[in-house]
């Protein structure tokens, strides 16, 4: 087989593995969702470890569940985000590292030991067709991914990439991501319909613990806890930003993530910050989280500090 047609072959799938990049922007008014790596911070670290442009297409691997990849040609890969008990020919791989692989070796992702989503980066980024400016795979819309049909990886899919790793980097102290632990705080910028929630509900929202429900995917993550009451009824649908915390009639919030609908009509407390969204995307069902109000200014400062982490 020629260089161009060899790569890494999917021998066995797990619950979900998707090609993702930063997502689609400048097209939300067309009704097209954002998509992109749900834990965008770990995704960027994975690319950084190889010296790739930070938003190069990579694999987002959810849970692991036996996903098995067979290497056809030697290269260097990087892994970041969740610890999914990944091995290379039975030797454990540590998230937050890059490593070389040889033809014939097998990568297996087993089960989540910490976090939920691992990011596997490839030299120069995964090859995949661009649609509406992105390779992000969004299943509901049938857009993006390896075959531009929005489908997750399936057995016999072949992953290829354009070149050699531009760099071999190592994380130093303070770099990389730590997976969220129970009790972690998620920053929320209050806004939208927050004024229509009762005082008691607001007190509860920001002072009592919330559990991450098992009804959680790339569209949204449901939180369970005290019922929140909003006086608004019959809202007109409006645009939904990343991290919007909407509260349907049952009073249990849903945090809307990358694959959310572009408009919707449930009242909202505000929106999680992008870093909080990344953390929430790593929380297994049952994880306890707390919502911490933050002003837009404070949130922006923290966000700019996060972006500065990748500047040389």
């Amino acid at each position: 087989m020629s260089q161009a047609t060899t790569g890494i072959v999917v021998k066995q799938t797990g619950p979900l593995a998707l090609v993702q990049d930063a997502g689609r922007f400048g097209i939300r008014h067309l009704g097209v969702t954002q998509g992109g790596a749900a834990d965008w911070i770990s995704f960027r670290w994975a690319n950084w470890l190889l010296g790739n442009p930070l938003d190069s297409a990579a694999l987002e691997i959810v849970m692991g569940g036996g996903l098995t990849l067979e290497v056809e040609r030697a290269t260097r890969l990087a892994l970041a985000g969740a610890d999914l008990a990944a091995t290379l020919d039975d030797v454990p791989l540590t998230p937050g590292t890059s490593f070389s692989v040889r033809a014939g070796q097998r990568l297996v992702f087993r089960q989540p030991l910490a976090g939920l989503r691992a990011y596997l980066a490839f030299p120069g980024g995964l090859d995949a067709p661009q649609v509406l400016g992105s390779r992000a795979c969004t299943a509901r819309e049938r857009l993006g991914g390896l075959h531009d049909d929005g489908q997750p990886l399936i057995a016999d899919d072949r992953l290829t990439w354009p070149g050699e790793a531009p760099a071999e980097r190592r994380l130093t102290k303070g770099q990389g991501t730590r997976m969220p632990e129970s009790g972690c705080r998620l920053s929320l910028v209050p806004g939208a319909q927050v004024a229509h929630f009762s005082g008691v509900s607001l007190y509860r929202a920001f002072n009592l613990p919330w559990q991450v429900d098992n009804r959680a995917d790339r569209m949204g993550v449901r939180l369970t806890g005290p019922a929140l009451r909003c006086s608004l009824r019959g809202m007109v649908s409006e645009g939904i930003p990343l991290g919007a915390v909407q509260v349907p009639a049952d009073g249990q919030p849903i945090v809307l993530l990358n694959d959310r609908q572009t408009i919707g009509g449930y009242p909202r407390l505000g929106a999680l910050t992008p870093s909080a969204c990344a953390a929430l995307a790593q929380c297994l069902p049952g994880t306890e989280v707390r919502l911490a109000p933050q002003s837009p200014g404070q949130a922006q400062e923290a966000h700019l500090r996060q972006l500065a982490a990748w500047q040389d």
Partner: peptide, 23 residues
């Protein structure tokens, strides 16, 4: 401007916070 989402009664303005502060 990153995205602008018009709807029935509103427009959502998503701007680049590396260029502009909230105020």
């Amino acid at each position: 401007l990153i995205d602008l989402v018009p709807s029935y009664t509103t427009l959502l303005v998503h701007y680049d916070c590396q260029r502009l502060g909230h105020a």
